[in-house]
């Protein structure tokens, strides 16, 4: 599994200099991390076929080696509920730089967390869990641990989040599936430990957690830059 992942990383590094989202998600899935059911559609036919099989609502994201920050360029559309909006969205995406298709995914409702990892100069591979989404930098509610982590560490990470009560079923909401979150974090931390020579950092943001699943809805893998 690891050698396959390393091969995928080096292909990405050579062809694009970074890892595009469909490849990043394939890597995560290979490692055993829950990701949305998805399809990399290069044509409208492929997009429609996936929608027919999967059903709505769907999310659509541009795949382009030239677009690192998809939402900044209008490269993310969520809540697609009809065939017409799927086609309109696809048409819009084709106009973005370097268009290489779209990633169409099942949609999730839940609490948005961020799971991150980096290879730290002093401490080696470390993982981070925090309150995620677009406001992650504003709240900065994150906890870091040395990787790999075990289930006890994940429990302690959750306890140390300022917003931990959100995860435990705040105001009548159902608590998130802790076993799924624990599984995601332990698997992720083992993956980055194994890949500590091959990557610089990984963001899984958001990780969407509800009472059933914890799913890495977006993934960014940063490769070591030359000379590092």
């Amino acid at each position: 599994m690891l050698s396959k992942i390393r091969e995928m990383l080096s292909v990405s590094a050579m062809e694009y200099g970074w890892v595009m989202e469909p490849d990043a998600k394939n890597i995560l899935q290979l490692a055993g991390i829950d990701v949305p059911v998805s399809c990399w559609a290069k044509t409208t036919e492929e997009a429609l076929a996936f929608a027919a099989k999967q059903g709505y609502p769907l999310a659509m994201k541009v795949v382009s080696p030239q677009v690192l920050h998809k939402s900044d360029v209008g490269g993310v559309i969520i809540g697609i509920n009809t065939k017409e909006s799927l086609l309109a969205g696809f048409e819009k995406m084709t106009r973005l730089n370097g268009f290489a298709g779209v990633l169409i995914e099942e949609m999730f409702q839940g609490i948005e967390l961020i799971a991150g990892a980096k290879i730290d100069f002093q401490f080696g591979p470390v993982v981070m869990l925090g309150i995620g989404g677009v406001s992650v930098e504003i709240y900065q509610d994150t906890v870091i641990r040395m990787a790999p982590v075990d289930s006890k560490d994940v429990e302690s990470m959750v306890e140390h989040l300022k917003a931990h009560s959100l995860l435990k079923g705040f105001r009548g909401a159902k608590p998130i599936n802790m076993a799924a979150l624990t599984n995601l974090m332990t698997t992720f931390s083992q993956l980055v430990t194994d890949l500590s020579a091959d990557i610089e950092s990984i963001d899984l943001n958001p990780v969407i957690c509800n009472e059933e699943r914890c799913v890495a809805a977006d993934a960014r893998i940063i490769l070591p830059s030359a000379g590092n």
Binding site: K118, F123, M128, G130, E137, T142, H160, E200, D203, I222
Partner: peptide, 20 residues
């Protein structure tokens, strides 16, 4: 220092040390 990811910018040297 890498600033290309959220993790890299949120997990500064001091924060990493203090949490660990």
């Amino acid at each position: 220092r890498a600033v290309s990811s959220h993790t890299a910018s949120l997990a500064g040297d001091y924060k990493v040390l203090s949490d660990i």
